[in-house]
């Protein structure tokens, strides 16, 4: 049976994992390759590395980091952050990524999705969508507004229509982040996840808000997510991957466990 996936995310700046890494037994808690390998051994189904460095000079460091991390892994490996063109994507694939995640650049030029998919296949293109619940212009209620540039700019797009468009243009997966839930540890945004999984036929990765094992049960069972992504709870060891996967299995959620 096809399993639901647990994805560990590494936020990287200038070759170092940032945003809360406190791991016992590591020589260097901030090294992406070492951390990725540790999570893979613990049962992560996939690793996502997001480059959050803003400057161009740091791109070279990113490629070296991707190369080292890819060498340490034998599970799927996605890289995102700052990919603006086919050439950017090609460099990241050359460095060993299996998939790339694009966000702002895809909204600025939606044809980029098809361009990268035509060369590397749809399975290699993840469209990342950051969503914030926003008041309608007429004040009649809220809608799922898509943000770009790391969540700063409003794009005028709505999450489900943009997800559908991304699929039609050749995206292989949607990485859906709730900015309202991100960092709260109050659980995934189940309504958002449901709205998007109902409209697209491609896998949806839910992200933002994971705090307990039960939150993962909910996002798979009630949200219909195909995969769930989290970062700091795994880095801090708040949730141990083997325990999480064992509990999800016991709840009847198909898991790669034992693996």
């Amino acid at each position: 049976m096809l399993t639901k996936r647990i994805i560990v995310c590494l936020d990287v700046d200038a070759g170092r994992v940032v945003k809360g890494v406190r791991f016992a037994g590591l020589r260097d808690a901030g090294d992406p390759a070492e951390l990725a390998a540790l999570h893979a051994r613990a049962g992560a189904d996939e690793i996502v590395l997001l480059d959050i460095s803003a400057t161009h000079e740091k791109r070279g460091i990113l490629l070296e980091t991707v190369q080292r991390t890819a060498r340490a892994l034998m599970i799927p490996f996605t890289v995102g952050g700052g990919i603006r063109s086919l050439d950017d994507a090609a460099a990241v694939f050359d460095a060993g990524a299996d998939k790339i995640a694009i966000n702002s650049a895809a909204m600025k030029d939606p044809s980029l999705i098809a361009t990268i998919a035509a060369r590397f296949g749809s399975q290699a293109v993840v469209v990342a969508i950051d969503v914030k619940r926003t008041l309608q212009a007429d004040g009649s209620g809220t809608y799922f507004s898509v943000k770009s540039a790391g969540g700063r700019d409003a794009t005028g797009r709505e999450a489900s229509t943009w997800s559908k468009e991304a699929q039609e243009r050749g995206a292989g997966e949607i990485l859906l982040t709730s900015m309202d839930s991100d960092g709260t540890k109050d659980g995934f945004d189940l309504e958002l996840t449901r709205v998007v999984t109902a409209i697209v036929a491609i896998p949806v990765i839910a992200s933002g808000g994971a705090g307990t094992k039960q939150h993962f049960v909910e996002v798979f069972r009630d949200g219909g997510a195909d995969a769930a992504l989290a970062a700091s709870i795994f880095h801090f060891g708040e949730i141990a991957l083997p325990e999480l996967k064992a509990e999800l299995s016991a709840e009847g959620i198909p898991m790669r466990w034992p693996c």
């Binding site: 996936r5 896998p203 195909d226 995969a227």
Partner: peptide
């Protein structure tokens, strides 16, 4: 079923 078939299966 969803297509593509993506993920870990037996």
């Amino acid at each position: 079923v969803k297509s593509p078939h993506v993920g870990w299966n037996q």
